[in-house]
Design a protein around this nucleic acid. Structure first.
Lengths: 347, 347
DNA sequence: TTAACTTCCGGTAACGTTCCCAATAGATGC
DNA sequence: GCATCTATTGGGAACGTTACCGGAAGTTAA
């Protein structure tokens, strides 16, 4: 099969110049209606389709946008990707999707690919706070997730961690739980610090000494949560154990560890997750968790990017509120309090 | 900030012509080593980065590939996307990702976007068997998932449904189960027919009359499986109920329905899934399922596409074997068989 | 010394599109 | 009737890159 028809072929077929054909096809008012119709017919007849490479070349607008997330396989990020995809699509553009695997080099390489593809903008969840990479990025971008503070002048969307943590702790208090143990992400990740800080703040507000909190590190994976929970159970063998996990995957891993240890959730151990991944609804018991508005995050990040590019006024940093989803992984300790609870909830 | 440096800027800075600069940067042998080094330095100093739009325009190779799947949010398809992403990335190209939501119009629109972006090739899971759309697609593509038969001359990758069903039924027989009830996808989807056909074949091989099988339709969603299971339990109130679900999401929904009905899995109801989604490992009991090699599917589809474009010989249709993952959702009926089993397993 | 050959480099064209400018024809105003 | 204006069109340039062609040196062989 031969080469794709160009606008010159269309022009020839319609018996006009390529300028006129281009005008007709781009809805310019400076073209006679009869001519336009003629050109349209020729375009359809020849199977012409605009070459976006050439358009981008000429206009500087490639119609391409980029998304760099840690892992498309992670249900949270898949939702984010979907949200971004939808908004980008509504604006007639296409989305290049990359997974960085939380790896600096991969991220850098993806950013380079985006620049070379001349994307009009990018949505990025930065691996960490290497501000230089983005200072020199050279492409409009919006940030998603954590690590927004470093870039006061670029739009950034995230979940409202403080509000989410408050929601979680309030709920725990209402259910009669003491200060929960924490399973956090790795120290290298920004989100960890933010989560921990919020927990501390809220503990102080409730006159709980943060130093009392048991803390274990995970790596945001199922296995990591599983291992962290095992360590936690080894550290506290008696009484009801309440655990607040920094993400759902670790919470689900923790749940497995509980079962394997012959303990039962929520009877012996209460688990609160954070993310709102679908799998949390399938576990047994269902995972009580704080849901991040993942898809909306993606949509807003994309929208902010379009606003930014169009020069529309920006909100700067935006934090979307999270929602508590109550399923079955939290005991209600207000009913019959076990004897040997570690610490006691006040208020 | 000014405009991006072009190869002309680099050439000027290095004191050579743009031809020489281009040669130097593209590792042509026809350039002096000293000159090459000079140009490289100038490129780095100016922050030059190749404009892929222009390269694509000139060479006809855009460095872009497309992926059209039903929904990036679906964990199976996310895995496929990741596999494709990896292979495409290894080849120095980028991947445009689209979700069709099983909608013809969206699919058509995505395919058009792909063509306009001048992707070098595309990986598609077609919404249905509208052969015309692809006959006229005009871009090399490989198919993934079902509906491959329509295109004997294009590479296509899928899971080996027959082998998978055999695996499942063999396992059920070994565990002492009779012919299972089925929860299938909607009639409009190709995969349904293929799955059902395989079940029938294997039943006949085992002297089981396929007409005996209870069948309910779902829609591949959690809710659909939930509802289908309720109908199934209403139809068969006594004895151990064994259900083979056409995908994991429905299986998980079915599991919930079982619990809600006060029955217990696997004691009263055995459930076998199909897909191998991660969530199946988090449910309780863990979902015994047949795992499709999702990521490998994506990798192979991408590889096939590259092979096809490079003119390397093709296998045509490839079906990758599936793997049974035994977790806890299947009872072992060979131990103490309940009295009123519906039908009896032969062998 | 000259011819042929190698090595390296510069100029130009082309990819497909859109934008700017000029040109044509008809219409309008005086 | 002539200038001016409007509506519509065509021609050419430019976006950034690479491929091709030819030329200028330097090198080797006779």
């Amino acid at each position: 099969m031969g080469r794709r028809p160009t606008i010159i072929d269309v022009a020839r077929l319609a018996g006009v110049s390529k300028s006129t054909a281009a005008r007709a096809l781009s809805d310019s008012p400076d073209v006679n209606d009869a001519t336009r119709e003629k050109v349209r017919k020729a375009a359809i007849a020849s199977g012409y389709e605009r070459n976006h490479l050439a358009v981008g070349m000429r206009s500087g607008r490639s119609g391409l946008f980029g998304l760099v997330i840690p892992d498309i396989t992670n249900p949270f990020w898949a939702e984010v990707a979907r949200g971004a995809q939808d908004i980008v699509g509504e604006n007639g553009a296409s989305l290049l999707v990359f997974s960085s695997d939380w790896d600096h080099d991969r991220e850098a390489s993806h950013l380079r690919a985006l620049r070379q593809a001349r994307v009009e903008g990018a949505i990025v969840n930065p691996v960490s706070d290497n501000a230089e990479d983005f200072g020199r990025f050279g492409v409009p971008f919006s940030l998603i997730g954590s690590s927004a503070e470093r870039f006061p002048d670029t739009p950034s969307i995230g979940s409202d961690i403080r509000q989410a943590v408050r929601l979680g702790l309030d709920h725990l208090v209402a259910r009669g739980h003491a200060a929960p143990a924490l399973i956090l992400g790795p120290k290298s990740r920004l989100a960890r610090a933010r989560f921990l800080r919020s927990v501390h703040e809220h503990c102080l507000e409730r006159d709980i000494d943060p130093a009392v909190l048991l803390v274990e590190d995970g790596d945001y994976t199922f296995e990591g949560g599983h291992a962290a929970m095992q360590r936690l159970m080894a550290r506290q063998r008696n009484g009801h154990l309440t655990v607040f996990c920094a993400n759902d995957l670790m919470a689900l891993g923790a749940m497995l560890a509980v079962r394997e240890a012959g303990r039962e959730c929520p009877r012996d151990v209460s688990i609160l997750g954070f993310d709102g991944v679908p799998a949390g609804a399938f576990s047994w018991p269902g995972l009580t968790t704080i849901e991040k508005p993942a898809r909306e995050l993606g949509r807003r990040a994309a929208q902010a990017l379009f606003d930014e590019i169009a020069g529309r006024p920006q909100d700067g940093r935006t934090y979307l509120p999270c929602r508590l989803i109550e399923r079955g992984s939290l005991a209600d300790l207000t009913v019959h309090t076990p004897l040997r609870v570690a610490g006691a909830g006040r208020s």
